[in-house]
Design a protein around this nucleic acid. Sequence first.
DNA 1: AACTAATGTGTAG
DNA 2: TACACCTTAGTTA
Length: 277
Amino acid sequence: MPEGHTLHRLATSLDEAFGGSPVRASSPQGRFAESAALVDGRVLERAEAYGKHLFMTFEDDVVHVHLGLYGRFDVHRGVPEVPAPVGQVRLRLVGRGPDGAAYADLRGATACELLTPAEREGVLARLGPDPLRADADPERAWERIRRSRAPVGGLLMDQAVVAGIGNVYRAELLFRHRVDPFRPGRSLRARQWAAMWDDLVVLMQDGVRTGRIDTVRPEHLTDAELGHTGPRRGHSYVYRRAGEPCRVCGTRVRTRELQARNLYWCATCQRRYRGTA
DNA sequence: AACTAATGTGTAG
DNA sequence: TACACCTTAGTTA
């Protein structure tokens, strides 16, 4: 589930479980063993997320994690005893908080590496504004979008334009604003981008709160969906709904590969752009 | 039990 | 554009 909201959730969770205290770090799977040994027993000062990147700071050593497509970092707090690792655990952190023992297991990540603070800045320099950070400047994203001939559906996935958007937020944001994903960035208007950004901030903050991506307004949910209680996947307008009827107009949702990722959209609600920009 | 697809990114060609 | 990475949830048999 790793889009930006997942990483921000994770940073908070790691901070609460281990922040400010010494942690034991190890790599049961072995691929991060040397680096884990370097931070083992030291104080985790803080964990923070920028877009889909996670940084855990131990003085001048920064553990940089990127979950990629299928990585997970599961944090367990208040356990009576820390269990033996199950499966391929790249990095395990163990600590002790106010509510007992805590441990976290990282598996399947694309990146788990030790960086210097300067290298961390290098990673950050390649990222666009992150809607989940209070200091994010949507104008920086707009400057790229307004000058680009590339399809806006591709621009939104570019982490140098906006940091933290993935395939789900991309598809859903475009639908909610009735924007054709193939429209060139430069055909958008400033006011439209401002509205999309504001919406994205709310959607992603919701994602941080709930741990899922829910983008469908209540009036567009079925009675069955409204009545359903208990854990479930987030609802979407178009993401992974290829061939199903659009929740707004009933047209079958379409899908197509764009830059090696599955794009979903409703060709009726997101009317084809025919401008000359 | 076997098989597929996946919320991502980097590299090679 | 293709695929390597390396894991799991969901589907099919």
